[in-house]
Design a protein around this nucleic acid. Sequence first.
DNA 1: GTCGTTGGTGGTAGCGCTGTCAACGTTCCT
DNA 2: AGGAACGTTGACAGCGCTACCACCAACGAC
Lengths: 366, 366
Amino acid sequence: MGRKRTKSGKIRLAEVAEHAGVSPITASRFFRNPEALSVAKRARVESAAKELGYVPNLAARALASHRTEVIGVLIPSLTNNVFSDVLRGIYDASEGNRYSIQLSNTRYSILQEEKLLRLFLAQKPAGLIVTGIDQTAESHAMLEAADCPIMQIMEIGPNPVDMMIGFSHYDAARAAIAHLFEQGHRRIGFLGARMDPRVQRRLDGYQAAMKDAGLFDQRLIVATATPTSVTLGGALFTDLLAKSPDIDSVFCANDDLALGVLFECRRREIAIPEQIAIIGFNDLEFMASAVPTLTSVRTNRYEMGRMAATMLIDAIEGRRPEQPVLDLGFKVIERQSSPARRSDSRPGASGAGAANKMVALPSSHD
Amino acid sequence: MGRKRTKSGKIRLAEVAEHAGVSPITASRFFRNPEALSVAKRARVESAAKELGYVPNLAARALASHRTEVIGVLIPSLTNNVFSDVLRGIYDASEGNRYSIQLSNTRYSILQEEKLLRLFLAQKPAGLIVTGIDQTAESHAMLEAADCPIMQIMEIGPNPVDMMIGFSHYDAARAAIAHLFEQGHRRIGFLGARMDPRVQRRLDGYQAAMKDAGLFDQRLIVATATPTSVTLGGALFTDLLAKSPDIDSVFCANDDLALGVLFECRRREIAIPEQIAIIGFNDLEFMASAVPTLTSVRTNRYEMGRMAATMLIDAIEGRRPEQPVLDLGFKVIERQSSPARRSDSRPGASGAGAANKMVALPSSHD
DNA sequence: GTCGTTGGTGGTAGCGCTGTCAACGTTCCT
DNA sequence: AGGAACGTTGACAGCGCTACCACCAACGAC
């Protein structure tokens, strides 16, 4: 019969307040807005909470405040390495603060995305991170109507719902093709898997570049809705060779495909880059390690996730970014699979306008 | 003035009940335990809910019931492909039911794990999935005391907190070495990165196998705490060659390292498998596609995640498994990087006891 | 000295739902 | 026929916290 408690023995805010000699509401304020308290009470509540081992009840808080401290994240895939880097950035940025991440995967279906969005929104999240800019009209309307900050990631486009962080897959693909043009390649194949909107835009960039150069040929394109894999890269390359035996290079819409092409070339004893040059997309870690090392378009995935979560949290807490749309750019990383052929060309970064488009990042705020 | 509502215009359970002509509590029961209602009322509530577009308030539910419908998942890494497969299984299994997944990563730190565990437990999760069996004493105590089902995944061990699903990394490593022995290899190197508990147990298995055969040599082992990567595989292999130039084969504690070794061999013009045989671990997709194709120990990661979530949900809902510890086994997949040398050996699965230890899976319950 | 203003504090009244228990009608058993 | 047992329903009282508003002291402006 010592201290007053609920039957469960759980420490509630009321116990902390009593222990600190303040009213419950003052104790409550301590956790939400400590600056509003006098220094003396702040210290008293703090030590009382620590002493009692108080753990706030999030459900009660959510119920009373009509808000949660959950950041919802919708990504299309958990398998794809690309997203794991982004996720790592998001989790890193959300660590150490009050927000918790709730992750769902849409499996590349915008209908599934719409469903999950509805689910998330019903929980009144503090903020939302969604992948891409191709939501259904319904989803878009829900996002517009949501009373929390929204971050769209992975690419940038004309009509941000709220904030946006990514890069132009179209420009990146054009830069990749420009790089191959520079090396003197003309019969450039395209290999694409999954063909989600971002891969589609890479294809668009490829087509535009080829058409501009008067080199477009439908037979150079092999694209499938099948999920990507290294094995698939070999298979698609085989298809490409059958359609267009005279190709001199391949642009792979992602690095797994590029690795598959590398192995398929080994199998067929096709010399890289002498007979076929290869360029991938994303610049995953293994690209620098392969034999020969593989050229790729580097994208800033970790940074994208980290910045997205950081900006989102800032926005949730009222610190709106001066610039809601951030282009993180990309960079063609030239390696042995597509080396400069002409000795007069500058080494390293190519001269093509967009090819070296690294945007300076605002410094991290902590 | 029309229907009675809260100021926000939100549909609450009370509105649904009124619309259906039942009491709020009956409506509540409809969502938790429909079988308890008479067929007539069930239908009335159902249509009322649908008509009004009712969305339950999870915070209120959690507050009143002292429970949530969150399944907490603690994994060491988001980058590692191994976990992304497991996660995919978990998400797949949790789809379509009421539970939502809350993911956190411990970054391979058991102290961080303990901290996160405390955080999760405070939220009264419906269930918890944790990685491995090497929790701190404190963590273990918390898990034991938790009033929700607990699932430990990735490996199996002697003292399950509750349920457990995985396989023996020790046995799997022994099977890998047994396979190399069968091909006549004697100077077998070991390459390990990160050296988390599971990799450590693979090393233990390697050492035991080598000692049993009288072939153990400390100079055959190269292990580092550095996170794994393909590039690292090449570097570790370089170290190994410097320490033991006479090796005839390498057991890589994961497939990224194996791929790095493959490339390093290419660079050094070492013939695989003639000069060096390679065996990896996990059997990631690219292993079957490499040139030469790479032998590996297949582990059932997706299945592990799917089964873990399925069994956990069953346990949450009172359907306790007859068998709380499930060994999903492994299988040595023999490929070109370590082909059978003796024509008299049986093809495919080796004869070694543990080498082909695939446990039959209980059929999925839906 | 009065008035407004500010910073700090507390009281009241819920947030939307469910646990508990009581009560009812119906069926089945003896 | 009486009673137990069951299935179904409802009333009530919170769960633990915060929004809202009221209040009080301290201060400066006039």
